[in-house]
Write a protein that binds this DNA or RNA. Structure first.
Lengths: 150, 150
DNA sequence: CGGGATTGCGCAATTG
DNA sequence: TCAATTGCGCAATCCC
């Protein structure tokens, strides 16, 4: 993609190329007919499409020049868009990772809390208490009800 | 946008097109006195890199043809890659949304459980329990982390 | 040195 | 009418 600074190609001094002289062999390319059993002339013909515009006129050169600029511009734009898209992919990938990390964390937290909850429930059910201590044998958890739910 | 499948422009397949006056804007008539005194001869600085290869040889045509195919192939590939990239963006975007939804859900669940815990803690307040926690927030989870590694 | 793959460029037909 | 696109061929490079 990134083209090294080496001047690739483009050495043709694009300036005013006065190519008139082509003795004789120069003229517009004939719309070669589809030969072979191809389609015949497609749609209507409408007389002349437009003057073929001769290649040695200033008009021609002017138009060409303009089109060349437009083409260049268009291509540049296109390339940039592609690059942007590529960048967006990376951006999204990053964000994805971030989100996944977060999910992982949340999941873990949830897991811990749930475990604690379960433990508690068990204690209540069995009327047992966690070995935390010193005595305190009384079950304090009487009030714990689970209303969880959702 | 919709580009009709019709071959636009060049339908010249690769058949024998006698005069190829198009292509590069510059094209001097084939075979012209090379060594003449004119400046027409390209600067031979540094010797000839590679024979300019005359345009009327079979060799030339053959090469051109091959290159044209390669070019076509390369461009096709390029286009497809671009498309893939674009598709990847969409894919990533989707996944992104999915992940975010999940996060939302997990967050909510966590919130609920935490609230529950807070309630219990309140109830337990009467009793003395190993106060390993004043903060009932996530810190607990963070501290306990263990199992499940990934 | 050979030869496919890339890339910049101009041309011409289309499209908008 | 004119700019923007698009397919294509050419030539210079790049890169095995």
């Amino acid at each position: 993609m990134s083209k090294p600074p080496g001047q690739a190609g483009a050495m043709e001094a694009n300036g005013l190329v006065s190519a008139h002289a082509q003795g004789s062999g120069l003229q517009q390319v004939p719309q070669l007919s589809p030969g072979g059993g191809g389609k015949a002339t497609p749609p209507s013909k409408q007389g002349k499409k437009s003057a073929p515009l001769e290649r040695n006129t200033d008009e021609y050169r002017m138009r060409r020049e303009r089109n060349n600029m437009a083409v260049k511009k268009s291509r540049l734009k296109s390339k940039q868009k592609a690059q942007d898209t590529l960048q967006r992919v990376n951006q999204l990938k990053e964000e994805n990772e971030r989100l996944e990390a977060k999910i992982k964390l949340l999941t873990k937290e949830l897991s811990v809390l749930k475990d604690l909850f379960l433990e508690h429930a068990h204690n209540l059910a069995d009327n047992v208490q966690p070995p935390s201590s010193t005595g305190t044998t009384e079950s304090a958890a009487t009030t714990i009800q689970d209303g969880a739910g959702q």
